[in-house]
């Protein structure tokens, strides 16, 4: 049933702007740019999807289908996960391309390297924790949960820029062109992925709990 719901998300809820946001992983090809911002655009795409879903009475429609209430939440969060994993895959391609075409360090935060993907996982994880549980408390409210999540994400992106100058481990180990310090960056990537998995599961649990209490009108 979840597969069918995901198909429904792609067919009926995917917002045209979200395709463009996915394409903005190409920002990684710009020299001296805070690449974390490219992940934020995907979050903006998820915001547009949630807005479109609200305007099209998606939750009401979905609830009339033969599914359980809990699955409405699972499908939406898994849809976001799919979009984010696609964005990370595209980012990985852009990182490789960046290495081939530019191969220059980034003066505005993390270099285009393996650790950047770990940073992407962390940013998406924080977004899940702040956006979905607040949104599923009342599906008609999207703006405030998104603003709260966006502030946290931008604080982290700014922190990345600061750390890339101020913290030796960040500056000399993580924020370096590939393939140097490959093992440490891989560990950072895995830690980011683990945080992402944990925060997504926690977000799912909290969102479902709140949505089950929600009256849909």
């Amino acid at each position: 049933m979840l597969g069918k719901l995901l198909k429904k998300e792609w067919a009926l809820c995917m917002h045209p702007a979200a395709w463009i946001m996915l394409g903005l992983s190409t920002l990684i090809l710009i020299p001296n740019y805070p690449y974390g911002v490219s992940f934020f655009y995907v979050m903006l795409g998820i915001f547009f999807i949630s807005m479109g879903a609200r305007e099209n009475h998606d939750v009401m429609f979905t609830m009339t289908l033969p599914i359980g209430k809990r699955e409405v939440v699972t499908a939406r969060i898994l849809f976001a996960v799919e979009l984010e994993l696609i964005s990370l895959l595209l980012s990985a391609c852009m990182i490789l391309l960046h290495g081939k075409l530019l191969n220059a360090p980034n003066g505005a935060g993390m270099d285009a390297n393996l650790a950047l993907l770990g940073e992407g996982f962390i940013l998406y994880g924080v977004f899940h924790l702040l956006f979905f549980p607040a949104h599923f408390r009342d599906v008609s409210r999207i703006g405030l949960p998104f603003v709260a999540a966006s502030i946290a994400v931008f604080v982290l992106i700014t922190l990345d820029v600061v750390l890339s100058y101020a913290l030796p481990f960040w500056r000399d180990v993580l924020d370096t062109p590939d393939p140097s310090n490959g093992k440490t960056k891989l560990v950072f990537l895995l830690v980011g992925a683990a945080f992402y998995a944990f925060s997504t599961l926690l977000s799912l649990h909290l969102s479902q709990k709140r949505f089950l209490k929600l009256d849909i009108r």
């Binding site: 069918k4 198909k7 429904k8 067919a11 009926l12 305007e55 099209n56 009475h57 998606d58 009401m60 429609f61």
Partner: peptide, 15 residues
Amino acid sequence: MSFYTKQKLRKITAI
């Protein structure tokens, strides 16, 4: 209720 106002009925039905 009016669902997915800009989607064709064919698509809504298929889903």
